[in-house]
């Protein structure tokens, strides 16, 4: 199925070439876990600090088991960032 992967800050460099606006449409198997997705794009796990699926935070302990992603879901990942 196809989902949208969004990688921000310096993780943006790990998106497929020609990606625009820090996102890419990608194909993933339905049973994929978030950590498998993170590994597939060679994101160092400590750098996958903030992981949101459709805007909802997914904590570390829930990233190893198959995640019930649906077609067109958006997975967004940031390294440790802050502002204010």
């Amino acid at each position: 199925m196809q989902i949208t992967l969004k990688l921000y800050a310096h993780l943006g460099d790990l998106l497929p070439a020609n990606s625009k606006q820090n996102k890419a449409e990608i194909e993933v198997p339905e049973s994929i876990s978030l950590n498998e997705l993170i590994d597939r794009f060679q994101i160092p796990r400590p750098m996958a600090h903030l992981v949101l699926v459709n805007g909802l935070f997914v904590c570390d302990r829930d990233r190893d088991q198959p995640f019930a992603l649906k077609p067109k879901d958006a997975v967004a990942i940031w390294p440790p960032v802050a502002g204010g």
Binding site: K6, Y8, A9, H10, N22, A76, W78, P79, P80, V81, A82, G83, G84
Partner: peptide
């Protein structure tokens, strides 16, 4: 993070 992107990293 802050030196590179500043607080503006929060927009997205």
């Amino acid at each position: 993070g802050l030196p590179t992107y500043g607080t503006q990293v929060l927009m997205n």
